[in-house]
Design a protein around this nucleic acid. Structure first.
Lengths: 117, 117
DNA sequence: GCCTCCTATCGTTAGGTGACGATAAGGTGG
DNA sequence: CCACCTTATCGTCACCTAACGATAGGAGGC
């Protein structure tokens, strides 16, 4: 349990220059595997909750997430790792802490893939 | 392996009277668990592929799906069961076969939940 | 009624997942 | 430099998942 909550955690804002459209197809074998991987990463309530916290940016620092979820710190860290490896979030080391934020590009990609169904 | 492919499999078309809007919230604990469950069901390439086949209605009968996927019949049946239990598809017994089709309502619900991220 | 076709279920096995506590690693502040 | 805070990783355990072959069971044709 952390003693004080960081009042305004900050991740690097989404880089405007990276906002180029995603040209990859939304169908086919590669797209199927990509969608399956992203869906699998979202396939746990705790990870959905983490995504929501980060989307609304009410929390960004790992410890804040640990405080909210009814899980051990190591378990939360594991869930963060799953989301990060799927590309859905990004973690930046901010001094002694780690600041997590959503990867908007991947989230858009997920929505496009789901939308193709 | 089935000997002849059903040329025009038919599931009951989506019932227009069921097309009432879904009033459930897209956020909160229940929504998180619902999204996690749906995402988990999609979290396998074979199941994504099945969903695509059913959405484009190029196949509907179980055997046709088995013919396309490089998996044993029992494995495909298991994947169909997962999708059915998640509410994403529906199976109707059609004589000696089983005709599967997407459950449009659940698919719309999934899109709404993903869209809320 | 019997035989065939189609599908679901069972049983099994290998490997993955989720949970935790313990521990390591890295940064800050005194 | 040392103590502390924060987070990642390791080790472990119970459980779930995905795959298969074998089998059961229902429908339909002869």
């Amino acid at each position: 349990m952390r003693l004080n909550v960081t009042e305004a955690p900050r991740c690097e804002p989404p880089n405007q220059s990276e906002e180029t459209p995603d040209l990859r197809p939304v169908e086919g074998k590669a797209a199927d595997e990509e969608l399956a991987e992203l869906a699998k990463a979202l396939g746990h309530p705790a990870r959905v909750q983490i995504m929501r916290m980060l989307v609304r940016r009410s929390a960004c620092v790992c410890g804040d997430i640990v405080d909210v979820l009814p899980l051990a710190q190591s378990t939360v860290s594991q869930h963060l790792k799953v989301l990060k490896e799927a590309g859905l979030i990004r973690g930046e080391i901010d001094g002694p802490r780690t600041c997590y934020c959503v990867e908007p590009r991947t989230l858009r990609r997920l929505k496009a893939l789901i939308g193709s169904l």
